[in-house]
Design a protein around this nucleic acid. Structure first.
Lengths: 343, 343
DNA sequence: ATTTTTTACTTAAACGGTTAAGTAAATATA
DNA sequence: TATATTTACTTAACCGTTTAAGTAAAAAAT
């Protein structure tokens, strides 16, 4: 059952455990011949060092924790991909925790992680995270790197994308495509990314002198069915929008469904832009204009930043903020011919 | 930096570390008054036990390892979701490793995990996994639960879906919808799920007396661009199929794109079924007929099974196989009106 | 009043490694 | 030849926690 230990190697070779340990660590204190014997036996018996013994001694776990709201979202799964790639390359292990957008989970997980299980954390906060005492408390013990959904109140590394500019560019694109009544579909009032995107949205509305009452913000929830009803209602109202800017990927399905069921043509009657990393955007009918975030890259940079700190803890994490731009990918949901999308 | 230890509690209360440890464990050996004092101080100083010290002592890590080919796939992200849910509920931690379909990664990861870092592993093998010595070796030390992509040669718990039946049902559905030349798009010759689905496919072909030369198997790769070319070529060949059964989700994009670009109507000229958990299946044009696997449920059962064993290691894992049926969800890509999908 | 049992602790070993300090023998230096 | 240095080890302490074994004092039983 249990694997080979240093003690067993020591006994077989009639050496002390210290000698074995140093031989395996290629120490100058050990003769070449002994090193060879140790390495050979270690290989033969398939010796694997116990991860926790070393961790306990060095107070280092070679493990990072990743807290994300969910993983069934292209952005987060791509980011996780990037994080895991860097971690594996640098010999780190990745503990994953899904908060399911619950602040209480986030709090409980961070509290548990102070116990030495991880050397640091990479996280994207929940939609509910409007207080941050738990993160601050965690950060007193261990380093935190935020990515995407950051906590402005915590002074640490933040890997983000240009949400403000993208909110602006997406709105500008809708306006220039002829929209006058643009609705921004939000999912939170506190989330950093949403508030940045919203600011960009508002700036464009103001700059182009659109009627601010027509260009409102509608709050969606975690419940797809509810969102569907909400969008359907919105699209049946007197003041129906002619442009939709959806701030999260998962709203795409409900927007397309509602328009299909109400027989509203995209882009003829309403033009749609989504913040999305879904590969299927290109095969939707009409193909979906997206703001596509550099998810994989953001994950890689977040992990690289954290691991850089763990290697050299004189680094000031607060100076390690990176902004990687997203791309506006224009497709038919904002520019397509109306005939393209008869349903 | 470092957190509070039992030693510090002991010193402050003028007690031994043993007393503190037992008080925290609510041992009968400790008086109620002492327990109260210990608990109070522990709470005040926010004592969190060091995870690895306990792990080292008990040779248990309260951690499970999850090996999946990738996480940017609805099936695996949903399954991970299910695994993490059960793990968190039972106080376990989840280490995630992405093999990226590389056997060498799978081997390296399993080897590293023998070092006590995990108490067991839940895995879905890579497309390259045609030997299994590494899994067998790992399994000598620690329990393994397979889900979805299993290794038939290893005697342990396997959580699967009814791939054979689904291969059959999907093919039958295509045949009954009028297809005579059905192509199965495969990604591997060794993968358990693919071979089961293929068997079901062949059974239906034989039962309905379709021409076996027209109903061939085409091998796709990990490269989307290559798959696109392959599908395009196939759809331009003399013997163009009138039905496609795609065994993995990610092929959807290339099928739809190729048909769009070649101006081939789905379902008019070719009907399509995909094994897929993508939520966007419903908003594609035409909406996509899918075999949808119980991904979340499979993840939950896999985790529950592993944790059941870890609690009671007299359990025989090989007796803990579960098959959870998938669903054929019929949509317009096989039954829709041709007019629905003019592009 | 004496012995036994119970209570409420402490001591020390253990988990599997690492490492500072110690040491005997071999080699180099004066 | 006597002393200093280097080589190649070993011993023992330590990381933070658990737990078997030991113990003194209090309570119960005889």
């Amino acid at each position: 059952m249990s694997s080979v230990t240093i003690k067993q190697l020591a006994e077989q070779l009639q050496l002390s455990t210290a000698t074995i340990s140093k031989a395996l660590g290629d120490s100058y204190e050990i003769s070449e011949s002994t090193k060879k014997r140790v390495l050979a036996l270690a290989k033969e018996l398939n010796y694997i060092p116990n991860a926790y013994a070393g961790s306990l001694r060095h107070n280092k776990s070679k493990t990072i924790g990743v807290l994300v709201p969910e993983v069934t979202d292209s952005f987060f799964s791509l980011a996780l991909n990037g994080i895991e790639e860097v971690a594996l390359e640098k010999g780190y292990h990745t503990l994953i925790y899904l908060t399911h957008e619950k602040l209480s989970r986030e709090e409980a997980i961070l509290k548990a992680l102070v116990g030495g299980r991880v050397d640091g954390v990479i996280m994207s906060v929940t939609v509910e995270t409007d207080s941050f005492g738990h993160i601050h408390e965690f950060n007193r013990h261990l380093p935190v790197v935020f990515f995407d959904r950051v906590c402005p109140e915590i002074d640490t590394a933040k890997i983000t994308t240009d949400d403000f500019e993208c909110g602006y560019k997406a709105t500008q694109h809708l306006i220039e495509a002829g929209c006058h009544k643009i609705v921004l579909l939000s999912i939170s009032n506190s989330l950093s990314i949403i508030s940045e995107r919203t600011k960009g949205f508002k700036k464009a509305i103001a700059e182009y002198n659109l009627n601010e009452d027509d260009c409102r913000i509608v709050n969606c929830t975690e419940d797809p069915q509810h969102n569907y009803e909400l969008i359907k209602e919105m699209m049946q109202s007197d003041n129906r929008p002619d442009g939709i800017l959806a701030t999260v990927e998962k709203l795409t399905t409900e927007i397309y469904l509602a328009c299909q069921h109400l027989n509203i043509n995209i882009p003829g009657q309403v033009k749609v832009v989504c913040f999305s990393n879904q590969p299927s955007a290109i095969i939707l009918t009409p193909s979906l204009t997206t703001i596509t975030q550099p998810a994989f890259e953001m994950g890689k940079v977040a992990a690289t930043t954290l691991l850089k700190l763990l290697k050299n803890n004189t680094l000031r994490l607060k100076d390690e903020c990176t902004v990687i731009p997203s791309k506006l990918i224009i497709r038919n949901s904002t520019t397509g011919q109306v005939n393209d999308t008869i349903i």
